[in-house]
């Protein structure tokens, strides 16, 4: 969102705009705020109508998340840390795999003059946008046949396939923006293509790679359906665990749910602040950059 200050449309506004937009921004943020506050409320305070803004904060929900016990009652078989680990492990492994494969493919599609590139790119995008349930049903059948159901390997494979189209499109959009001249000069000097990719393209692509990785992590971190159907009780990711353990089994415990949600939300808030300029590109899979 870096804009030209001389552009008549984008003349800087004054502090008045700050106040007005802060009020509207806060109103927009109320649902998230409610959750953040509920995480620190006792059960009675969380259910108070109208919602209490001033209350004595408690950390009991966070403690019970990690010990597995609330009010002396076991609410988790293992602590919440298992699900945090699962989410982090599955997301980072699949994003790393997708980035590696995606970087090569993105470079091939962006630079090498391959026949049928535009069809293949269309196919890649379509793969990501078709209803996930279409692929989940056969994958469920397949996984239970070959014993991959509930395993980390199965989930990582599924999420690699889920992140790959995104990685290809996103990285491609960054590569097309790089000037070709540096690569061409190195080529004339006798460098090989792998050397060019490693020494010339990668260093310029650092920011793009980071943005792609982080947004893919958020997508995977947030996904529910694949994990809901294909994970087992030991390999559940956070959203599935939140719903299963806290929703169905014990009648929703809102404080606990909100505490889990708060831990879950923290990394996402950082992304919303630091990655604003790449958010649109990420949300459109690199098809809209400016």
């Amino acid at each position: 969102m870096e804009q030209d200050d001389n552009h008549p449309l984008f003349r800087p506004a004054s502090w008045g705009r700050t106040v007005g937009s802060a009020l509207i921004g806060l109103a927009y943020f109320i649902p998230v705020l409610w959750m953040l506050l509920a995480a620190f409320k006792t059960r009675q305070d969380a259910l108070a109508v109208p919602p209490k803004l001033i209350f004595a904060p408690t950390f009991e929900h966070f403690v019970s998340l990690f010990t597995g016990f609330e009010d002396g009652k076991q609410v988790f078989a293992d602590g919440f840390q298992l699900y945090i680990f699962n989410s982090l492990f599955i997301a980072s492994a699949s994003v790393l795999l997708a980035l590696g494969l995606g970087l090569l493919a993105a470079y091939g599609f962006a630079r090498m003059q391959l026949p049928g590139t535009s069809y293949l790119l269309f196919y890649t995008l379509a793969m990501r946008m078709i209803p996930p349930l279409t692929t989940i049903i056969p994958l469920y059948v397949l996984f239970s046949k070959i014993g991959l159901g509930g395993s980390y390997a199965g989930l990582i494979a599924v999420y690699t396939g889920f992140n790959l189209p995104f990685a290809i499109w996103m990285l491609r959009s960054f590569i097309v923006e790089l000037p070709r001249e540096a690569e061409e000069a190195a080529w004339l000097d006798g460098s090989s293509r792998p050397a060019i990719l490693w020494r010339i393209v990668l260093p310029q692509l650092r920011g793009g790679l980071a943005a792609t990785a982080i947004i893919a992590l958020v997508f995977t971190w947030n996904d529910f359906l694949f994990s809901q159907i294909l994970s087992g009780s030991d390999t559940r990711t956070i959203p599935v665990a939140m719903l299963r353990v806290m929703g169905a089994d014990f009648g929703t415990d809102w404080g606990l749910f909100a505490a889990a949600g708060t831990i879950y939300l923290a990394p996402v808030l950082l992304v919303a602040f630091f990655l604003q300029n790449q958010l649109l590109r990420g949300a459109t899979f690199g098809t809209v950059t400016r």
Binding site: G25, Y28, V32, P239, L243, Y264, V268, A272, Q276, L279
Partner: peptide
């Protein structure tokens, strides 16, 4: 302030 507005699209739909 944009962070406040952009957070919702980064949340898990099910949550």
């Amino acid at each position: 302030i944009l962070m406040l507005v952009l957070t919702p699209m980064l949340l898990s739909t099910v949550v």
